[in-house]
Design a protein around this nucleic acid. Structure first.
Lengths: 145, 145
DNA sequence: CTCTGTGCAAAGGATTTGCACTACG
DNA sequence: CGTAGTGCAAATCCTTTGCACAGAG
């Protein structure tokens, strides 16, 4: 996860937008950039703040709409994390993995790669065109046990 | 998933509540009963309606609070499904698996059992006490491709 | 030039507090 | 009996529309 790969991911997301016939506006670029820059764990409102640091002219609902658009394209996913507002997580690599503490809502990320077979299996069984997956483990962290 | 196992699960959830020092009130029993009865895929408001069919004296916020309590105990989990209100899913068996269409938001459930090892692995690596997990695959169903 | 996307403000829901009352243990 | 839990209503917060304008293709 260095500058280079961020740039690659940015280009990739923009390519998906273009391919599906959506316009590459300044606001969308800034929003995606901010989302990638903050690691992809953020609420809509939080993302708005980050975007404003880059470009204050982007409005709140453009952020909401862009997030919705990216969700439909399977690039991000809204999840509940703790209480309150929805958190969005990046799914552009095809998958994402969380370890969440049910006591303090801390989130740890990890890599794993045991689900590619499962993905194929499900694609066949349900005749689905699988875009990605999200895995979340719940438990109590050392401090909360 | 027959009557017997529903009863078992009900008892299990009540046992968890008791063990953690929470009271087994009439409202909570009715709410858990309704949640199990409807299969465990429902919004807070939807659940309220089901509960009211059993016992109209249960209030809306008791449902909200009970759902929050069950979430903290790791027995259920709120997820986004389509847009709008949060959906709660049962996690009392320790795990839950979804296949979601990003086009029409249809949800398919499936069983799998390849993550028990992963669970142990993570427990050791992060020193976590793992309670359960949720797996969601995203893609497009046959109708939406 | 045309049509998609944007931004503002105001509406629309969902979820959460404050407080007196009920009932579990 | 004491305290956790409940219920109502009002408040709060997140998110979504309606509509005129601006910018991408």
């Amino acid at each position: 996860m260095n500058e280079k790969s961020l740039q690659t991911r940015l280009n990739n997301i923009q390519a998906v937008l273009k391919r599906k016939g959506f316009r590459l506006t300044n606001s969308r670029q800034k929003i995606v950039e901010a989302l990638l820059g903050c690691g992809g764990h953020i609420t809509a409102d939080g993302l708005l703040e980050v975007v404003h640091q880059i470009d204050p002219s982007v409005g709140r609902m453009t952020v909401y709409r862009t997030l919705e658009l990216l969700s439909e394209l399977g690039l991000i996913r809204p999840v509940y994390q703790g209480t309150g507002a929805a958190h969005y997580i990046l799914l552009d690599g095809g998958h994402h993995h969380h370890l969440i503490c049910s006591g303090c809502d801390a989130v740890f990320e990890f890599e794993e790669c045991g689900l590619q077979e499962m993905s194929k299996l499900l694609a066949e069984r349900f005749n689905f065109e699988i875009e990605g997956h999200l895995v979340e483990f719940y438990g109590r962290c050392p401090n909360c046990q």
